[in-house]
């Protein structure tokens, strides 16, 4: 397994947000984590990214423990995280946001390497290079956030609700981009409310409820699961 999260518990001032949750992601997969608002999905990604400290449990990435590492070191290990509010550098240009993505690389060639692929995924970014990030539309900002994450040349890309707050047309573009990044060998851990669309592109999924993993399985199985259909797909 590329990523193995074993029984992590994360709390906020004593309030349990993740309760002994376990998930795993294999090399090359798209894995979706779904669940209602407040289920702990964002907390799960933040705990993996080193932005929250789990109280117990383990996070293994490429066979090494990464829980307890500072967040910037987790990024350096090859986990790129696009949080739900994107966290772009709003008053910096699109170009600077992208350049910051390759901050970890010293050689110019390493820095430039992903840029053409990023522009192929999101052609509209190329036209907006000199604009401040804050002047982009919601969908474009999401694209820039994913693009910046790809510039770190990650092995695992974690996306927290990339479809949130963006125009429907752009949602498709973002989902297309996720599929395309996987085709180029990247592994994706996706948190989404839009379960039906996510299950279409995902290989496997986990369903979180009040901090616990209550269901997991292949995307097809989850789609056919009566409980999932009733509670999450509204069928």
């Amino acid at each position: 397994m590329l990523l193995e999260v074993s029984s992590i518990t994360t709390t906020y001032q004593g309030l349990v947000a993740l309760d002994a949750a376990s998930i795993d992601v294999a090399q090359g997969e798209i894995v979706v984590v779904a669940g209602a608002n407040g289920a702990g999905k964002s907390t799960l990604l933040k705990s993996i990214a080193g932005m929250e400290r789990p109280r117990s449990g383990m996070v293994m990435f490429q066979g090494e423990r990464v829980d307890g590492l500072a967040a910037h070191l987790v990024t350096a290990r090859g986990i790129a995280f696009v949080p739900e509010n994107r966290r772009l550098f709003p008053r910096l240009s699109v170009a600077d946001n992208l350049r910051l993505g390759s901050y970890l690389f010293r050689r110019e060639a390493d820095r430039e390497a992903p840029i053409e692929r990023v522009f192929a995924l999101f052609p509209r970014l190329r036209e907006r290079l000199e604009q401040r990030a804050e002047t982009l539309s919601g969908g474009e900002q999401q694209m820039l956030a994913i693009a910046r994450a790809l510039m770190t040349r990650p092995k695992l890309l974690m996306l927290d609700e990339p479809s949130q707050g963006i125009a429907p047309k752009l949602v498709d573009e973002v989902f297309e981009a996720i599929l395309a990044t996987r085709r180029s060998g990247l592994t994706v851990l996706l948190v989404e409310q839009r379960l039906s669309e996510s299950l279409e592109i995902a290989d496997r999924g986990f369903i979180l409820q009040t901090g616990r993993v209550i269901l997991s399985g292949r995307a097809g199985e989850l789609r056919d699961n009566p409980e999932v259909r009733r509670a999450y797909l509204g069928i």
Binding site: G50, H72, T75, P83, F89, L100, Y103, L104, T152
Partner: peptide
């Protein structure tokens, strides 16, 4: 701009 976000690109704030 956002000290909490620089870790996302590998910068130690």
């Amino acid at each position: 701009e956002d000290a909490g976000a620089v870790a996302l690109v590998g910068i130690d704030k």
